[in-house]
């Protein structure tokens, strides 16, 4: 098959994917989205002949729009722009997870520092303030006191891009020093790991220790429901243990898997390419 890869930076994740695709004899068209224009009538990017395009854009904004244009050109793309739009926005993710009846951290959105502070006080301390767009644990604030809350809110209101004036406030979840990342293809778990650390943030990008995690029935069911809730695809579903169950706090649509590939016994890029091959075959059946 001919596979387009939308990218702006080749991480180790993309190198693993490229190696697996080439090893299986697939034609790979790397499309650096920085070098092309995407018009209503078409693009100079070589997307047209692709059986499937895989969005691996590092920048969320590029991912959202480039996939929209693929859809506009009737080029099959994973993940879909609908999935990207939900996962790229923490507000939309929270709403989708809650709509699906999933356990997810209690969340309030406020548009002024005053109403945000009221929400913070209603949760009590600590609680968490997150940017609505962002990744790798950046710009996350654990608010331990009213003084800290006032300072962070004022900084965001004064210094931030307009998106930082959408205050996303969340109940702090007392997790056991770790969270769980499950990589799934259309809701089917591929591999999972725990990410542990002393810091309240346990992102792999923050240097958390990673260990393989055995997905049980309860987690598998939550992952499948979370995947359906955001539109499916190749996803990284993040969960926290709450003592009496789990809460789903994030779903990532351009999921990184190098840490998971190292932590688990699963050949993650191989399973991902299996899934891509099946998706491409399904597209051929739909559009003969």
């Amino acid at each position: 098959m001919r596979v387009g890869i939308l990218y702006s930076r080749i991480r180790k994740d993309e190198k693993l994917l490229l190696a697996e695709l080439r090893e299986r004899g697939h034609d790979v068209e790397k499309v650096d989205v920085r070098k092309h224009g995407f018009g209503l009538d078409g693009t100079d990017a070589a997307l047209e002949d692709c059986d499937l395009v895989v969005d691996r854009c590092l920048a969320t904004s590029r991912s959202k729009y480039a996939t929209e244009f693929c859809k506009h050109y009737d080029v099959p793309v994973v993940n879909s722009p609908d999935t990207a739009a939900v996962c790229a926005d923490k507000v939309r993710t929270s709403l989708a997870l809650d709509d699906a009846g999933l356990p997810t951290p209690d969340t309030t959105v406020a548009f002024t520092t005053e109403s945000a502070l009221e929400a913070v006080e209603s949760y009590g301390y600590p609680c968490v303030l997150k940017p609505v767009v962002g990744s790798w644990g950046r710009l996350m604030a654990k608010l331990d006191s009213r003084n800290a809350a006032e300072a962070v809110l004022e900084h965001k209101a004064t210094l931030g891009h307009y998106e930082h004036k959408v205050f996303y406030i969340q109940d702090f979840v007392e997790k056991p020093g770790r969270d769980i990342r499950v990589l799934a293809t259309d809701g089917e778990p591929v591999a999972a790991m725990t990410r542990s650390g002393d810091h309240w943030l346990t992102n792999a990008a923050k240097g958390a220790e990673t260990n393989s995690f055995e997905v049980d029935e309860e987690v598998a069911e939550l992952v499948e429901t979370a995947s359906d809730a955001v539109g499916g695809g190749l996803l990284g579903v993040d969960l926290m243990e709450t003592g009496d169950g789990y809460t789903v706090h994030e779903v990532n649509h351009t999921v990184e898997f190098k840490a998971l590939n190292d932590a688990s016994d699963v050949d993650v890029p191989a399973v991902v390419v299996d899934w891509l091959e099946n998706r491409a075959a399904a597209e051929v059946e739909v559009t003969p």
Partner: peptide, 11 residues
């Protein structure tokens, strides 16, 4: 030279 880290980078 590689581009500087942007706010919307991630997964």
């Amino acid at each position: 030279r590689a581009p500087e880290l942007s706010e919307d980078w991630g997964e």
